[in-house]
Structure formats: structure tokens, C-alpha cells
Write a protein that binds this DNA or RNA. Structure first.
Length: 424
RNA sequence: GGGGGGAUACCGAAGCGGUCAAACGGGACAGACUGUAAAUCUGUUGGCUCAUGCCUUCACAGGUUCGAAUCCUGUUCCCCCCA
């Protein structure tokens, strides 16, 4: 049993604990730990990665992780950290979301040698309650004045939007989850982000009243970026864990592009890279920032964990293609995989026959240029590429020699704008 | 209700009879540089068969003129001042 608490402290992941001796308590024997996940979509995104990794750290240290999916609470919405009332999810959507998320959690928590994770949905026990039973058994133990004092509730009461009775009750359900897990599995520790503190302590209080057991709580700081924007968000949307929503390439790129100021934190918070190596990377960032060793290591580690070796390989290959030399020796399938996010147009194969398809025409047609005039400008300024080879001849015509693979020509305008021409 | 000002390209803003596809600034795009960063510098920024050529555009519809973003009439919308 290794000293997980020391490692967490070093990583800066300890924010609050309900008990100062939590570190020692964890060393005494394997404990059972839980964290909750909201099923707001059919995939987790980068924002959920931190709590998930926390569970995994405990798991690696020999503790039993339980992931609780908010099948019941997801139908209500957690008011913590939210400024406005949330939309409610419908049953069917919730079921899809639960299934998708369970798969991802299972994947990240499949640590060899560690205890098997338990993944449950709180709808399993909450839905059995009648309203009256719940009020009698659980609600009775909640003094409203104490609830009103919690930050998560207080801030909403002070704000303009107020809070509905439904969201107000959220805390009771999550608190009861903890008690249930304690009874059913002997779970004694709940972990979560610092915004969960109110909910966690509510569960601990409820446990003391209902069972007399002593429960523990632990929160980690939220992962924030130095520029104040939200981690895991880009202009084009959130970064998801599922390959369908965010390709391994895009996922990899997100980490490669992490700002220097955030890289150290990401390495500590989100990866299991050991202390010595992270400190070496800190050093490298200070002395040779252009090497971007931290970002590369971060991207590699994250992509491998979420998308596996194959996903990492495809992301790296795509990166080489996006930023590297000429495209050759690839087949249709590889190209389509690499350029999964890139727009494409289908063109009749006969257009490649003599005299060939003018590049101007092709660029305008696939959307890289709004007009032929714009395409012309791009070429004249050296911003046009076919299969990553710069073309500076305005009259260039594409022929079958330009096929990068069986049926595809890759056209690029500027540094990062790609389009595919598919021939049939 | 009365009086005045305005509507120009992605945005802001000049132009007030020909030399106007329309200054300038911002943005955007491209190139160089660089760390797939920031800053900087350079170029481009209505469409076309790329041309001392044609077409479409200065709120909308008409008109005057050899010629209109520019002058006139009407319409719509906006702003300001006085009631």
C-alpha cells in the first residue's frame, strides 16, 4: 500500500479534507472510495477527467473505487457552481448517456492489479423511494437552516435567478448516496472537486445521523487555466473523451496546445507521470520552452490513456501529416482516418483526365476559397498546397499523378485549413 | 407634432459630379519569423474566362446628366434637439 496522500499533496491535489489524519487513515488498510459523475451527455469530457483520475489514483494505491453515475440526480441537476437553473434530461437520453459514460469509466479504471471498479447508478436505489418515504427517512435529517448556509445554495439565493425546490433537494439525494454506499459496500470516503464540498459534507452529516458511522470527505482543487477560460473548451466546443465526438487527433492536439503556464498543473493533475519526471519537465519548460517537452509528454500520456496505443499512433501520424512533409505512401483508409474532421467533396474521376482539373477550381469547390479570385490569391501568396507540397503555379491542374492515395487528393490552404477531394 | 442629422464593403469610418471597386483604421486571410505560442514585419481583402476588359455593389425605388456613392423626388429605417 503506497502513500497516496503524500503524492496527492505534492501534486497539489489536496484542497480540503474532513479529517486531518486522512493520510494515515488511508495507509491503515484498503478503503472504499467514491466519486460521482453527471450523465449530462453520452460521453465524459475533459472536465470530468480530474475526478476520474482521482479515483484511479486511489485504485492504484490499492483502494476500491466506486463510480456513481447520477442516473437519478442527473434528472435534477446539481446547483453547485451553477448560476442558473439547469435543463432537465429525459429518460431515454439519460439511459444512452449512462451507457456511454459507464464504458469510459470502466476503460480508465481498468488498472491491472488494482481492485475491480464498481460502477453503479444512483437511480438503482433512489428510484425505489416513494416521495413520502424519502421525506421521512432522509429529509427529516436535514435542517433547512444548515442547508441555506451552504455556499452552493447561498450563492443562488443571493443571485437573481434563485433556485427551484427541485435543485434545492439535489443535496439530499447526493447525501443519501453516500449513506447507501456505506451500507451496501462499506464505502467511507467521498472525493470530488472543491465545488462538491457542500454536498460531501452533507452526506457525512447524514451518515452520522442515520447510521452513526464516521465518513470522510476529500476535495481536490478545480483544474483552471491561467487565462481564466475553462479547461477542456475550445472555440469549437468541448473536448470529449469519446473518439466519435473528439477524434484522437483533436484530443492529442488539445494537449499539445496547452499553454506553458498550465502545462505543469495538467501534468500533475491529470497524469500518473512520476514526480522526478514532472520536475525534469518543469526544468525543461523553464530552460528550453521551445522544445515543448511538457506538452508532448502530456499529450502522449493523455491520448494513450483515453484512446490506447492505437489511438495515440493515429494521432501522432495525423500530427506528422498536418504539420509535416509531403503526403505519400498512405492509403484511402489512413487518410480518411487522419482527416476525419476535415471537409471533403466528391468529384468525378474523369475530371482528372487531360487537361486536368484546375487547382483554382478545386479550391473554390471544396470550400478552401470562397471564390476563384480568393484561390488565386492564396496560390500567388504561396499559401496553397497539394498533398502538403506547395503549389505556386496559378494555372496548375490536378491530374491522376496528384492522387495521394487510391482516390484522394489532399488540398490545403494556409497552415491548417485542409480539404479532401475524393474521386469516384 | 416641429426642426436637424444620418444610412458606404466583415466592422468603424472618409469620400459630396468624372482620375471610385471606393482613402484610412480594425478584423480576417496568406507569407516570413517562431515553440503548432505571443509579438513583429510583408502582402491580400466584391465576382468573372485575370484583363490598360466585363459584371455587381455606397439603405430601397425612380429621375437629372455624356457620366452619380456624390445632385433631385419618393419610400423605409436610425439618431439628436424642441414640444
Amino acid at each position: 500500500m503506497n502513500d497516496i496522500f503524500q503524492d496527492l499533496k505534492w501534486r497539489g491535489l489536496v484542497y480540503q479534507t474532513t479529517d486531518d489524519s486522512l493520510g494515515d487513515w488511508l495507509l491503515e488498510q484498503p478503503r472504499i472510495v467514491y466519486a460521482g459523475f453527471d450523465p449530462t451527455a453520452d460521453s465524459l469530457h475533459v472536465g470530468s477527467l480530474l475526478p476520474l483520475m482521482m479515483l484511479r489514483r486511489f485504485q492504484r494505491a490499492g483502494h476500491q473505487p466506486i463510480a456513481v453515475l447520477g442516473g437519478a440526480t442527473g434528472m435534477i441537476g446539481d446547483p453547485s457552481g451553477k448560476s442558473a437553473e439547469r435543463n432537465l434530461l429525459d429518460q431515454a437520453m439519460l439511459a444512452t448517456n449512462l451507457a456511454g459514460i459507464e464504458k469510459q469509466i470502466q476503460h480508465v479504471l481498468s488498472v491491472s492489479g488494482g481492485p475491480e471498479p464498481i460502477i453503479v447508478s444512483n437511480s438503482d436505489w433512489i428510484n425505489r423511494f416513494s416521495y413520502i418515504d424519502f421525506l421521512r427517512d432522509v429529509g427529516k435529517n436535514f435542517p433547512v437552516n444548515v442547508m441555506m448556509a451552504k455556499d452552493s445554495i447561498k450563492s443562488r439565493l443571493e443571485g437573481e435567478s434563485g433556485i427551484s425546490y427541485t435543485e434545492f433537494s439535489y443535496m439530499l439525494i447526493q447525501a443519501y448516496d453516500f449513506v447507501h454506499l456505506n451500507r451496501q459496500y462499506g464505502c467511507e470516503l467521498q472525493i470530488g472537486g472543491s465545488d462538491q464540498w457542500g454536498n460531501i459534507t452533507a452526506g457525512i452529516d447524514l451518515g452520522r445521523r442515520m447510521t452513526g458511522h464516521k465518513l470522510y470527505g476529500f476535495t481536490n482543487p478545480l483544474l483552471t487555466k491561467s487565462d481564466g477560460t475553462k479547461m477542456g473548451k475550445t472555440e469549437s466546443g468541448a473536448i470529449w473523451l469519446s473518439a466519435e465526438r473528439t477524434s484522437p487527433y483533436a484530443f492529442y492536439q488539445y494537449w499539445i496546445n496547452v499553454a506553458d503556464d498550465d502545462a505543469g498543473k495538467c501534468l500533475r493533475f491529470l497524469t500518473e507521470i512520476p514526480r522526478e519526471e514532472i520536475e525534469a519537465l518543469d526544468q525543461s519548460r523553464a530552460t528550453e520552452p521551445h522544445a515543448r517537452a511538457s506538452q508532448k509528454r502530456l499529450a502522449e500520456s493523455m491520448t494513450r490513456m483515453i484512446h490506447g496505443d492505437a489511438g495515440l499512433a493515429s494521432a501522432e501520424r495525423a500530427t506528422a501529416v498536418f504539420f509535416g512533409a509531403e503526403i505519400q505512401d498512405l492509403d484511402d483508409k489512413q487518410l480518411l482516418d487522419i482527416f476525419a474532421d476535415v471537409p471533403s467533396v466528391t468529384v468525378a474521376r474523369s475530371e482528372l483526365d487531360e487537361p486536368g482539373l484546375p487547382l483554382l477550381e478545386a479550391m473554390a469547390r471544396c470550400g478552401l476559397a470562397k471564390s476563384k479570385g480568393e484561390a488565386r490569391r492564396a496560390i500567388e501568396q504561396g499559401g496553397a498546397y497539394v498533398n502538403n507540397r506547395r503549389i505556386d503555379d496559378v494555372d496548375y491542374r490536378l491530374s491522376s499523378c496528384d492522387l495521394a492515395s487510391e482516390n484522394i487528393i489532399v488540398v490545403r490552404s494556409g497552415k491548417k485549413k485542409f480539404a479532401l477531394l475524393k474521386f469516384d
